[in-house]
Amino acid sequence: MIAPLQWLLFLLLAVTGPAVVLTREPVAQAVTVSFYGIVLALVFFLHQAPDVALSQIVVGAVALPLMILLAVAKVKRKEASRK
């Protein structure tokens, strides 16, 4: 039962990984990296590492995209105030 799921998740990783790299716009990238993070968390969960999966969810799917968004927002605010 696990093997097909494994293949599916590996396939998703192979798709979402390059998708993160190929997304050039930072806000959109925050979304793709978040999705990639969730897939990675599922991979960890499937391999019986729930602790790592939880860390991956909170960091990869929440904290990292959040930091990207906050940084982008700050840069945009600064640009607006320069104008």
Binding site: P50, D51, A53, L54, S55, I57, V58, V59, V62, A63
Partner: peptide
């Protein structure tokens, strides 16, 4: 599963 790090975030 879980702990200080995950719960803290």
């Amino acid at each position: 599963p879980g702990g200080g790090f995950q719960g803290g975030v």
